[in-house]
Design a protein around this nucleic acid. Sequence first.
DNA 1: GAAATGACAGAGT
DNA 2: GACTCTGCCATTT
Length: 106
Amino acid sequence: MVTTRRRPDTAFSRKVLSILRRIPVGRVISYGGVARLAGKPRAARAVGNIMREAKVPGLPYHRVIAAGGRLGGYGGNLGLKRALLAAEGLTVTGTRVRNFDKVNWP
DNA sequence: GAAATGACAGAGT
DNA sequence: GACTCTGCCATTT
């Protein structure tokens, strides 16, 4: 059966999606972190673009935040992202995540 | 094929 | 702590 979902078959996008699946609950990772694991430490922006277009259910996009523990952006519902992170045991303050170095997933 | 876009990162103010 | 500017990357149009 063929997937009706057209996602870019590029190694980078597949790698990024694969990494998102490995993020355990209660942990988060920065866009730069994902890019780094994907092999492009400078491709943080590209990671964001892929996630935006990937539209693959099952991936905790809300667990991917910006560097330094900043929430970064989200598809039009940043407040929702905050709620989801807080619901997973994270401490979120305004535009930042506390204990980022503890919840940061290498 | 080239230009424009965007879920960033880092340093400076 | 928050904002601004530049640089880097892949995807989309």
